[in-house]
Design a protein around this nucleic acid. Sequence first.
DNA 1: GTCGAGTATTATGTATACCAGATACCAGAC
DNA 2: GTCTGGTATCTGGTATACATAATACTCGAC
Lengths: 229, 229
Amino acid sequence: MTAVKLDVRPIEASLSFKSMAHDALKRAITSMNIYDSNQELRLDERQLSADLGISRTPIREALIRLEQEGLVRSVPRRGMFVVRKTKKEILEIITVWAALESMAARLITLQASDAEIASLRALFTDFETHEPRLRIDEYSEANIRFHQSIVNLSRNHALIDTMDNLFIHMRSIRRRTISEDDRVTRSIIDHMNIIEALERRETDRAERLVRQHSLDLAKHIEKHVTYLE
Amino acid sequence: MTAVKLDVRPIEASLSFKSMAHDALKRAITSMNIYDSNQELRLDERQLSADLGISRTPIREALIRLEQEGLVRSVPRRGMFVVRKTKKEILEIITVWAALESMAARLITLQASDAEIASLRALFTDFETHEPRLRIDEYSEANIRFHQSIVNLSRNHALIDTMDNLFIHMRSIRRRTISEDDRVTRSIIDHMNIIEALERRETDRAERLVRQHSLDLAKHIEKHVTYLE
DNA sequence: GTCGAGTATTATGTATACCAGATACCAGAC
DNA sequence: GTCTGGTATCTGGTATACATAATACTCGAC
């Protein structure tokens, strides 16, 4: 007697309240524009508990994860506060970003397939015929996808995970700065140069271009961004 | 009537059970040699609760932080397990390490004072007259301090924090590999070259040397380390 | 009206209770 | 003896209770 083999998949086991609360809070925090107001943004555990319909325990556990991710800060006996990054901190993050993404570029020239590199170019084909400045939101999204693709193509999970964490703090900034000055044109030129270097497997040049592209953003923010303290 | 100004410091407010449990567990995990046994290393919350003399709540919160740091992994409804990094994961971490430390070297050439750079050289003066291979433990510590100093001199807190996290997983590896082959001699030569480049403010060369030094460690581990799965 | 001490209230930190899933154990069928 | 299914126990996930620090409020002195 032999048992029938049913084609079933494992049940999604990660629906814990803790992780759901984490996702919900993360989304809520990243989508709110924390730099508009100047008030201290305290998170009331009981309030969140009521809003999400679960007890404080999983919410506290979610908040601790958010704290490690740098989205909130715990002040003992006072509560959790949404973190507002200072300009200095943003610049530091971009510097780390530059280090990691330029390493990703190195790895791509050494390990990625031609097809994978070609997929980067595909992200911008839409904008060859249309003026990107007229479709700034779309371009901004393509821009973000470009940078994430570079990281992902590195095939280095430690690097990908570390960048994900930094990315949280950068997304809003990138979207905001892309519409300033003539950064769109500059950005496209940079990207095309980077792709070219990757295609030609010019390891050092690809690394340098990616690093410089990020550090240029840092310079721009340092000089022009005023809404950070 | 004017109030007297007493010279008092803020009371250490971070003596929460949560943070104490975090420290205790972190120390316990990093000091145990997780690669000696092959068993699954599960952490029993109630056991820890009894051992530390506090309730499960702060222990769970400490474990969540450890999970974010990559020291333990939570399996839903099963518990927390001490993470054993695979060889592949260690190599990935070293690659990220290389990216960050080489960026730190860049920053040092651009921003650090001569005195700060000189302090790096001082770490090794003890070993100029004495044969380092005979004092391998001391040299290993100096070696670790050297790398940490480079990171710290970058003055970039985002970078420092990120590296701290990676460092947890590297300390045991570095100590173990330093005694193999003739890596000590190689290591000293590399370090001296790095310091020289920093002193001369040769940004690109310093960056390249630091990166290569780390990637060489990766190559060595890839080729010779067998105790990682 | 302003300041300050004392009190009430609120919210976090911790402990405990409870529930449901996971594991271990046991008994019966074959 | 081996396998299957049932049952007890254990353990993590969540809810709740409680204690103490932090805050808001009140009221009286001046």
